[in-house]
Design a protein around this nucleic acid. Structure first.
Length: 519
DNA sequence: GACTCAACTTAGGACGTAGTTT
DNA sequence: AAACTACGTCCTAAGTTGAGTC
């Protein structure tokens, strides 16, 4: 089997009466396609791992309020009623001894080995499940511990108490015929259900936003791997349709229908600038961030002329995770004219695309191509760009910096560019030197050069006020088969570009990809 | 069509660790 | 030995999407 997944069956030979091993590739089951929406036939797991209870403070650790010794009930920060009425002023709190205790504890933990921390035991017990015929790793098997909610950016709910989750809050999902996980002693689950149309094993409702949290499989699982593969297949299909789709939305820019015209401009942004779809958000529930469809008047400025370009749109808004998007983009005349039209008689605070939302947009997209949604453009554009750049780079080796600059001009988010650059750079690190003496010095030179390159890129990025989050697009947007094929062609070991976790996640791609793979 | 919600993907930051430099 | 750096892992927040309800 190409997939490298096998099941070993131990039988007894009828004639010799000796045990014999039988190797069966799981391809036999792999072919078994489930009917629509069914994600598994058998699911068994141990349930979630609960965080430890609060411990009372040891006798020699004290808390002082207003200079006075105060015996707190010593749940570290969940106060009793009495404490709450007494302790009102943070400035009068002296956490010194508690802080020192914590510092000592982390120091002690540092010196513990992994066995002492019992990590392995917990992972072994709770970290795996049995899904159909496979033992699979679970992504997050721990219930989130209570704490103070921070949120990102100016979050209206920052500082709220995230409550401790009890077994009574937890829904278990598993097979009817599996061993149902036992709740902690003296407790019971909220519900045990057997829904094989979903992939989660455990869920609960979180009290800050009231949203659901899930325990799901690790990215290296078959279920997630197949989903990932499907995602890139949709993006590849877009490749063959993108010319038509672009032609279509350029036509739509002339439409007399406001919805159609707004849709066309939004698509232009999503395609050209890799903007996210931009759902509406409930005001006061989350930080004020936007995506394409939720852009407001104050987020763009139109310039007839700017820096020698005509029809420039200046974007300035907070996107996902409150990451600032700032960009000055020359656009085609029709888009510019449409934007002026959309802005007529509007005030800051008004929506730029007042007739459009993500639902309308995605419905249109899926009518153009099955499976097409706004986010597919991010995957498609990132992957196709990586492939093109790798081709160019291969034709003209060693012009790393030139290429870096080239990539910087592409319509991708900064972190995508950075990832691609990093990947290409890594690919070109060749460590096969023969002379030992020279080796060290050369390595040092190489390090300096790399550092220089990196710093130069950092400098340009910083200049343009971009954030770099390495790894994200490598993990989420770039079709791994492009890189795997490249490695095969260039005879670069795969370890050069993917670490262990990434190799596990992309096992499907590493297994199936031939050198001639074309995105 | 507006609204709500479940289920899933995408994402940044904290932190630990190993290796390197000072 | 301390300080610094780069990288991987863990954690969970913050998005997207599609289905259901009214």
């Amino acid at each position: 089997s190409k997939r490298c997944h096998y099941v070993i069956i131990i039988t007894v030979d009828n004639f010799t009466q000796l045990p014999q091993l039988c190797l069966i590739s799981y391809g036999q089951w792999e072919e078994e396609k489930y009917e629509d929406g069914v994600k598994w036939k058998f699911l068994e797991h141990k349930g979630p791992y609960f965080p430890p209870e609060y411990q009372p403070l040891p006798d020699n650790v004290h808390f002082y309020y207003n200079g006075q010794l105060k015996d707190i009930a010593a749940h570290y920060w969940e106060m009793t009623h009495e404490e709450r009425s007494l302790i009102q002023d943070l400035d009068k709190c002296d956490f010194g001894e508690i802080h020192a205790m914590h510092k000592a504890k982390t120091e002690a933990r540092k010196n513990m080995s992994k066995e002492e921390k019992q990590v392995k035991l917990i992972v072994d017990e709770y970290g795996y499940c049995l899904l159909d015929h496979h033992k699979e790793r679970i992504g997050n098997f721990k219930i989130e511990p209570p704490g103070l909610f921070r949120g990102r950016g100016e979050h209206p709910k920052q500082g709220m108490l995230k409550k401790r989750i009890q077994p009574e809050d937890v829904i278990i999902n598993c097979s009817k015929e599996s061993r149902i996980p036992a709740p902690p002693a003296g407790h019971h689950w909220k519900e045990v259900r057997h829904d094989n149309t979903v992939t989660w094993l455990v869920s609960w409702t979180e009290n800050i936003q009231g949203s659901n949290k899930y325990i799901m499989l690790n990215a290296n699982s078959k279920l997630k791997g197949e989903k990932d593969w499907e995602k890139y297949e949709v993006a590849r299909k877009l490749k063959s349709r993108v010319d038509d789709i672009r032609y279509q939305y350029l036509q739509d820019l002339k439409s007399k229908q406001m919805v159609t015209r707004q849709r066309a401009v939004a698509l232009y942004f999503i395609d050209k600038l890799a903007l996210r779809a931009g759902n509406e958000k409930e005001e006061g529930e989350t930080a004020d961030t936007v995506g394409c469809c939720s852009l407001r008047v104050e987020h763009i400025t139109l310039h007839e002329q700017l820096d020698g370009n005509e029809c420039v749109v200046e974007f300035d808004f907070l996107g996902k995770d409150c990451i600032r998007y700032y960009n000055k983009v020359p656009v085609i005349k029709k888009v510019f004219k449409s934007l002026k039209l959309f802005l007529e008689n509007k005030q800051p605070g008004d929506e730029l695309f007042d007739r459009l939302n993500t639902s309308v947009l995605n419905k249109h997209l899926s009518s153009l191509m099955p499976g097409l949604t706004a986010k597919v453009f991010r995957t498609y554009n990132a992957s196709i760009t990586l492939q093109q750049q790798l081709k160019e780079l291969t034709n003209s080796q060693s012009h790393l910096l030139c290429h870096t600059r080239l990539i910087s001009g592409l319509p991708l988010r900064a972190n995508m560019q950075a990832d691609m650059w990093l990947q290409m750079k890594l690919i070109h690190v060749d460590d096969s030197f023969s002379v030992r003496l020279v080796e060290r010095k050369k390595a040092a030179v190489k390090r300096c050069e790399e550092q220089l390159l990196k710093l130069e890129v950092q400098a340009t990025d910083r200049e343009e006020n971009k954030q770099i989050a390495l790894g994200t697009s490598k993990l989420n947007y770039l079709d791994p088969r492009i890189s795997v094929a490249w490695c095969k062609n260039m005879e670069v070991p795969i370890e050069k570009i993917y670490n262990k976790t990434q190799r596990e996640k992309f096992a499907w791609a590493i297994d199936m990809t031939e050198a001639d793979f074309e995105f």
